[in-house]
Nucleic acid binder design. Structure first.
Lengths: 318, 318
DNA sequence: TTTATTTACGTAATTAATTACGTAATTATT
DNA sequence: AATAATTACGTAATTAATTACGTAAATAAA
């Protein structure tokens, strides 16, 4: 059992369950000592009914936080053991009303004795502890209810995966690069618009369309796959146009667009450009948000060779 | 789930188990997020092997605190899933050595990432809590390991049952009283010695032997049963002899002898006696202890009509 | 009113663990 | 060396819970 001690908080769940299990086994012994023919698992059901906290199967289930099926089975067992008697609900015929029999009431008397002694015993235990376990557990429950663990860990996972994304310059001799650039851009263009002749040319021969003209093409690589694309094409001496910003659908949500955009901007700085320009469409909200985040501002009047362009943006590099 | 809140410490075991269960379910989601085809229950077994903490079935079982059978089954499953490979122990042919396969090692890399993130996440949770759950739980475990709950509650149960014992004067017309007095005394006399003629007379007719001579007979009653006897027989004006102190074997351990003895002493006070006298046998250690506890001192020289008597004691009433 | 949805609860199947028990290998005892 | 006890581990049965799913009753919506 060193396991839990070594792992500490990481195995907290298992540890709690195990400790709970041990405590419950102790309860079984205690019931016997008090001469109660009572299975440990009956305890919550019995108390719900005996203390009139709940009297139908599903009310009991909700009260004790177990499945109604489990309660249903236990009620059956306890009825067979002579502790409970059941009848159909008088107003709602779907309900099963559960009541204590005379034997059940006797059991309840002994149960109350036990509870009293247990109360005292637990106070004794509590006094021997410096900390208050129950309070700690309840606080912990509140904290992980407010924001569950999977949600908490998601952000860290995202960061970790993002770190695995690398930005690489387009290599015309690399078939994976050519294929990725083509696939990702065809995908989004086809989804939202129509592929235009200019697209065909640039996607089939990025090296001619961008690189040989003095521009650059950057790709994002993740787990050996090309998952993002971007390209710069010279417009004037100190201005280039950003385009072909696309991210593979399977890799969305990792912030790859931002990574690519930032890399492009870094490159632009390095090349001594003064301004980046881009055209996009108002329907592509995530893209607009990304550009805005990267620092681009909308440009009022412009004309474009692409029919899909209805928004233009620019970024002045300081 | 109000149940646990209402019961508080009394249902601590169930509460812990439930909370643990919930945490473990969260883990399942996390594994999926990290792309691990890993069942939650495999987690401890996997880590034991991956971190070289244990590598045979029973070592793993001991390390993680589960049955070797469970581990055996899990190892089988994980072998089938391609994570483990097993071989018989080279020195001890009974052992099953468990090792990670290549796939298992890959999984271990991802597992380490997960553990790192989980570590950070749990630290985050910890910072949101005022108290330290794990520390609390460990402290609680230590406390109930030192003295388990059943042991703790035993003392209280004993006190509670002792309170249910009542001391009643012998009623010659009550057949239960006559039968109880006879049965309990015959039992212990026959067990240790031989029944003597004087015994026969006093046990068959206590009212003649004790009460009509000015003495008294007190009985202990518990759950409607006679479970203890005692009698006083006048010797002189201000001295009586205590005898027939017996407790039913089924009711031993409740302190009934002490209760009876104290009642007899109280009665003696009320009757204005100066001294109580008794004869017993050195083999009856518990009886000697009881008399000593009640304040009796041994008397050096004495003669007795009972052959079994080899010790005499007296108590001077202040 | 008719129809759709929700609720209460049960049966059957499944899951995750255990205990009971048997066998073979190892270690201790005579 | 022979015998007894212990250990390692597996199979089968059992237990305690769940999920999946179906039915009937009650409630809401059209």
């Amino acid at each position: 059992m060193d396991f839990y001690r070594t792992l500490g908080y990481v195995a907290l769940g298992s540890y709690m369950r195990r400790l709970g299990e041990v405590s419950l086994q102790a309860s079984a012994q205690v019931y016997q000592m008090y001469g109660m023919e009572m299975e440990v698992k009956w305890f919550p059901v019995f108390l719900s009914v005996a203390q009139n906290e709940a009297e139908t199967v599903s009310k009991i289930a909700e009260y004790i936080g177990q499945s109604h099926v489990g309660v249903s089975l236990m009620v059956k067992e306890m009825t067979k053991a002579g502790l409970f008697e059941t009848q159909k609900g008088p107003t709602d015929k779907r309900e099963t009303l559960v009541k204590l029999t005379e034997k059940g009431q006797e059991m309840n008397l002994r149960m109350n004795e036990l509870l009293e002694d247990l109360q005292d015993t637990m106070n004794e235990v509590r006094n021997e502890c410096e900390t208050d376990v129950l309070r700690s557990l309840m606080e912990y429950e509140q904290v992980i209810l407010k924001k569950p663990l999977p949600e908490r860990i998601k952000a860290r996972l995202k960061q970790r995966e993002r770190n695995k994304v690398t930005i690489v310059p387009f290599d015309p001799t690399n078939e994976r690069h050519r294929e990725g650039f083509k696939r990702i851009n065809y995908e989004w263009i086809e989804r939202y618009f129509k592929v235009e002749p200019l697209d065909m040319e640039s996607l089939e021969h990025p090296e001619k369309f961008y690189i040989q003209k003095g521009g650059i093409v950057l790709l994002a690589e993740y787990q050996g796959q090309i998952v993002g694309t971007s390209a710069l094409k010279p417009m004037t001496d100190d201005c280039m146009e950003l385009s072909k910003m696309g991210v593979d659908n399977n890799a969305k949500g990792l912030g790859i667009g931002e990574l690519l955009g930032q890399s492009i901007i870094d490159e632009a700085h390095r090349m001594g450009l003064k301004r980046l320009y881009l055209e996009t469409n108002s329907r592509l909200l995530p893209a607009l948000n990304l550009y805005q985040k990267l620092g681009f501002k909308t440009v009022k009047d412009f004309s474009s060779p692409y029919s899909r362009a209805d928004v233009a943006m620019e970024l002045w590099l300081g």
